[in-house]
Simulated scan of single mutants.
Amino acid sequence: MSSMDQGRRPNKFIANRNNKIYMDLKDIIREHALPFLPAKSLFRFKGVCRDWKLQISTPFFAHNQSNNFHRVMGFFCQSQSKPPSFISLDPNSCGIPDPSLQFLPEPVDIRTSSNGLLCCQGRTGEQPYYICNPATKQWKKLPKPTANHGSNPALVLIFEPSLLNFIAEYKLICAFPSADFDNAYEFEIYSSSEGSWTISREMFFGGAMFMPCSGVHVNGIVYWLSKMGGGGIVFFDLTMERTQRLYSSQNGCLGVMDGKLTVTSAYGQALTVNVLSNSYTNTMGMNSRVKAWDRKLHVNLSDRSELGALPSYTHSAHDQGAVLFASGDVIVFRCDRALHTYDMKTKEFGRLSCEIDNDVRFFGYVNGLVEI
């Protein structure tokens, strides 16, 4: 054996090892990276190769992706009498095939959203509720509720993906004015696992008006903004079936950050986020110094003239105020009808290239593959 031949053998061995590393990396990307991407990117990646197409097309992958991808990267918005539209924070990776939701059997109004699912209400006939995934165009018509929810119901959709539940399970909670008691609200709950509606025995007697499209869900409790003596928050505990007013001077947009309820507002050229730190101050003595809210963020906007003027918070039935969305790390607010964003991680401002109506309703959307 020549010295030249001996020198070639290690190179051949290294080449084989490099090939093995390449194959392992390809498998790692397919198995462990793809489930963390938004739906639009995944649909495009079906064209990479046959293996990726088969992988992405399986129900198990859709289940896995819905458990791993939770980031809000787009928003549905809708004004009165107009069809829905969609705004993406990253149009190259996040998008949907039919922003106006024409795949549904009738024109609809979006009422609430949760982790890739939308709840819409038909505009004709009995105005039924539809649960849909706009990324896949899958939808389901819900059975008719027992009670009359009115023409502008205060709904909250709860869908929390779980590795243990291969079939998506969700709940829809509606707070509606009682037909039997003046100045009272009742609660009706739809469970996908049961396939039926149930009216709670709990009622709220507080003379409040629950604000549609304002509700959020945090750790088994649903919160709504209410029009009551200048504002306030009402919550409904799903486990205990107990409702109560959360006394607060906070006005703004309800959201969820780090698993806690937040109120984000824009007043006097300042963007402020307050987080609920103690929800039991209602039961404490009048002289208690325990604070219910802690300030999480305060950003001065006065030195950013390019943003324009902030609208006032009117608390009207169709006006969400200056802040339209505030959950996770993203805040969306409007100045002079233009939309702006603030990233709480990077502390950077951005602008969305669109103008909106004053009566717009805004819904955060996760670009997921969850199957209904």
Rank of each mutant, 00 (worst) to 15 (best):
H32R: 12
K20D: 15
V216H: 08
G229M: 06
F235A: 11
L271D: 10
L172W: 02
S353Q: 14
R289S: 13
H63S: 11
A62G: 10
F362S: 08
V222S: 07
M23S: 15
R9D: 14
H315K: 10
V222H: 04
F325T: 04
R50N: 11
R71K: 14
R44N: 14
F235I: 07
R295G: 09
V222A: 13
R201K: 13
P161G: 05
S249G: 07
G207E: 06
I356E: 09
K141N: 00
K137N: 11
N367A: 14
K296L: 12
V370W: 05
C119Y: 03
V156K: 06
G368P: 03
Y130L: 00
D319C: 11
Q121K: 06
F60V: 13
L118S: 09
N11M: 11
L142F: 01
P84L: 01
G74P: 04
Y365D: 15
F362A: 05
D303R: 07
A309H: 05
K82Y: 04
D343S: 12
P59T: 04
G328K: 02
F181V: 14
N278S: 12
N152G: 03
P91H: 08
I173R: 05
A270R: 10
I221F: 01
A175N: 03
N18V: 12
I356Y: 04
D90Q: 04
K296S: 14
Y130K: 00
K291R: 10
A135K: 02
V290Y: 01
F45D: 14
G116L: 02
D303A: 10
W293R: 09
L246A: 07
V332D: 10
G47P: 04
D319S: 12
N300S: 11
N274K: 08
V330R: 10
V366P: 05
Y267A: 13
G95C: 06
R71Q: 14
E31A: 11
L271M: 07
K53W: 01
A168T: 06
G220N: 10
A168I: 01
M203F: 03
T198C: 13
R201C: 10
E306L: 03
D336E: 11
E160H: 04
T262Q: 07
I221D: 05
F204N: 12
T146C: 10
F210L: 15
R50F: 04
F176V: 11
D237Y: 02
M203I: 06
V273Y: 00
L369Q: 11
V275A: 14
F13T: 15
A270P: 00
Y22W: 09
S226F: 05
P134M: 07
V273S: 13
V299M: 06
I21E: 10
F210K: 07
A15G: 12
M209P: 00
N148Q: 08
I221S: 12
K12Q: 15
V370M: 13
G215M: 03
N68W: 02
E306Q: 05
P153S: 08
L118M: 05
L339V: 05
Q121S: 07
H217W: 04
Q250W: 00
D98L: 00
G364A: 10
R245T: 12
V216W: 02
K347C: 14
S277M: 09
K20V: 05
N133T: 01
L246K: 01
